[in-house]
Amino acid sequence: MNDEAKWQAVLAMDRTKDGLFVYGVKSTGIYCRPSCASKKPKRENVLFFNTPASAREALDGLGVSRERLSEAYCRAWGESPKKTLEALRFEEAKKSLAGGVSILNASALLHFESVSGFYAFFRRMGGLTPREYLKECGREEQVLLLDSPLGRLRLSSMAGRVTGVRLAAAGEKGGEDPGPELSELKNELLSYFKGELRAFQVPVAAEGTPFMKKVWKALSEIPYGQTMTYRELAQKIGCPASARAVGMACRRNPLLIVVPCHRVVGSNGSLTGYAAGVKAKAWLLKMEKRAAAN
């Protein structure tokens, strides 16, 4: 992308360009991702960088350090930038959950590294867990735990659609009445692990940015028993220079196995970057190849 295309992405707050570059403001020393909703600076004050680290180094070199910026912000607003950003993030989290986004998908949309981190943040900011907040909103999430060859899986749904498949945390509990969609998913997964099922039919609802959804759709089109590299997947969705962003979207896939991100491998065939672990990825690929051969 040239600088003009990047500037247009900033003006449009284009989430699909997050991870590809950041922009910095010379007059303030602030840098942010393209989708940042803050007031847009003058174009002549904007610089573009490939990584946050390069932006920080360049902007500090202009004499505007993060410390100076934080001090100026505290004097003007009476609180630190971190406090403000956390409050905005919490409001966005509540808005997402109240709007029907699952806990798993909300944690991914808000760029938390893990669901447990999202829980800790939500409890610290609001004094209750995301599940407790969902109950208050009348949008309770259904959960079913399933023992599998990969370990115990946590299956979740909301409003009749599957919203998440991931490894369950230690001590995590399922619900008493999981609902028909999770019962259907359980049966499909058991058939899949036996090598009998090649395509899932259960209705799903995975929340993400338009770019993430494009990647997840392409993942679902990789044939059973076959693999594709991150670079090939980037080319498939029409973004050949976005292999790293594609990898990030794969890592944030909320529907393990159902959306087969395990079928994406490194350029040298290495098994990298799977949420359930490399051993699980190897097991799934071996099982699929064996079943496809038979």
Rank of each mutant, 00 (worst) to 15 (best):
A108C: 07
G195E: 05
F121G: 08
P178C: 14
P223M: 11
R124D: 10
I30V: 00
R263I: 00
S38D: 15
L155I: 13
R152D: 13
E86M: 03
K213N: 13
L189G: 15
M158V: 06
R68D: 12
K279R: 08
P180R: 04
V246F: 07
K83E: 06
V25Y: 05
C137H: 09
S38L: 09
P149L: 09
T227D: 03
R15L: 02
F21G: 13
R56L: 04
S54G: 13
K281F: 00
A5T: 14
V46E: 12
K39Y: 08
V22M: 08
P254V: 00
A87H: 04
C250A: 05
V202P: 05
F121I: 02
S191L: 09
N268R: 02
I257D: 08
R154Q: 10
K213M: 04
L197Q: 05
Y73N: 08
K217G: 14
G99S: 14
E113Q: 02
M1K: 11
P180N: 06
K83L: 01
S102E: 07
S242Y: 07
W7H: 10
M158L: 13
S114Q: 07
A245T: 09
N105T: 02
L128C: 13
R75K: 15
P130L: 03
P81I: 01
E92W: 02
A276F: 00
L233Y: 07
Y119A: 00
D177I: 03
V101Q: 13
T272Y: 00
L109A: 12
M158I: 04
A55Q: 11
P203H: 03
K173V: 13
G63R: 06
A55R: 12
G24M: 09
K279M: 02
E288N: 06
E79Y: 11
V22E: 14
L62D: 12
C137R: 15
M228T: 10
F122S: 08
G151E: 14
N268Q: 02
P149W: 03
Y119N: 01
F112T: 03
G195A: 03
A108K: 06
K279V: 04
K217Q: 14
R152A: 15
L167D: 15
G164N: 11
H111K: 04
T16S: 13
W7Y: 07
S65N: 08
G29L: 02
A72D: 10
E141Y: 08
